[in-house]
């Protein structure tokens, strides 16, 4: 037996049947921690909340979050994940009077992993557009799922209606409504090219944020054709009731389309100072945070 093993054996003999740890001390009832409800209602935090929707003033337990914060956070996370996982029901576009098209993507997982396939139409959709879409239009509006079918189903049709009416009021010729499934932004190029539109506008569910699965984004491009890049486009994001309401967004998007047609360009070369509605390249209205979990 080695010296170390011999020493260990002797030590164990001395300790005999002793427990490795002493018995715990008697425990009095633990005082309930103070109520930590998020968001706090301190005056200072209310002042802060006028300037930011960041989750400030939530306190801490040790170095971690209070239970109420954890539940609120998990609810916000669930809303975001639910929006990403949602799919437009089969036949949704047709039921709502849109010409149904879909990209070359086969299923939802492929949609997330293959943006290249989400940017091109499948053969049946090309044939359907040739047969049913209006040709030589000023503005081709496309409603699509993008990264949130929830947003598309929510305010999508209201946004299409608002933009269409605002375009018509400006005397623009608007194409037949198209509804696209498994669509990425650049799908507007092929659709606009097939309808020979001056401007293509795709309105689609944007990548959800924490607690916000219902935002729509709009991407407009002058002279839609396969091969256009992001620099050729103008966009507006955060379109929903708590951000930019669809009615306002429709008016602004029509103004943007009209400016593209007047200037015969879009994207980085478009002069936004000459758009007759308040718009910036990539405008994003501030987000209002909702309390999701109500506990008695």
């Amino acid at each position: 037996m080695s010296l170390t093993r011999a020493l260990m054996a002797k030590l164990r003999d001395q300790l005999a049947g002793a427990e490795a740890m002493p018995p715990p001390p008697p425990m009095p009832a633990i005082e309930a921690p103070p109520s930590r409800v998020f968001p706090t209602r301190r005056a200072q935090d209310r002042r802060t909340q006028q300037h930011t929707t960041a989750l400030l003033g939530i306190g801490h337990v040790g170095t971690r979050y209070a239970t109420d914060v954890v539940l609120q956070f998990q609810a916000e996370l669930a809303v975001a994940h639910e929006a990403v996982a949602a799919e437009l029901p089969e036949g949704w576009a047709e039921q709502h009077g849109l010409i149904p098209v879909r990209s070359r993507v086969a299923d939802h997982r492929e949609f997330l992993l293959r943006p290249d396939l989400g940017r091109r139409l499948d053969d049946a959709s090309v044939a359907r557009l040739r047969e049913r879409a209006l040709q030589d239009v000023d503005v081709q509006i496309i409603l699509a799922d993008g990264l949130s079918a929830v947003a598309c189903e929510g305010a999508g049709l209201a946004l299409v209606e608002a933009m269409e009416q605002a375009c018509l009021a400006r005397g623009l010729r608007v194409g037949a409504r198209v509804g696209a499934r498994f669509a990425r932004v650049w799908l507007e190029d092929e659709i606009g090219q097939l309808t020979n539109a001056k401007v293509a506008a795709i309105l689609l569910g944007e990548r959800p944020g924490l607690g916000t699965g219902d935002g729509l984004s709009a991407y407009l491009v002058y002279g839609p054709k396969v091969g256009n890049t992001d620099g050729d486009r103008n966009m507006m994001s955060n379109i929903h009731a708590r951000g930019m309401p669809p009615a306002d967004a429709g008016v602004r998007l029509a103004a943007l389309a009209a400016a593209m047609i007047a200037q015969r360009t879009s994207g980085v070369t478009l002069d936004l100072a000459k758009v007759d509605a308040p718009i910036e390249r990539g405008y994003r209205a501030p987000q209002v945070r909702q309390r999701l979990v109500e506990r008695p």
């Binding site: 960041a54 989750l55 400030l56 956070f73 990548r207 924490l210 987000q287």
Partner: peptide, 10 residues
């Protein structure tokens, strides 16, 4: 970041 949530970049 506050709760790790980027309110600008989502």
């Amino acid at each position: 970041l506050p709760v790790g949530d980027d309110i600008m970049l989502n």
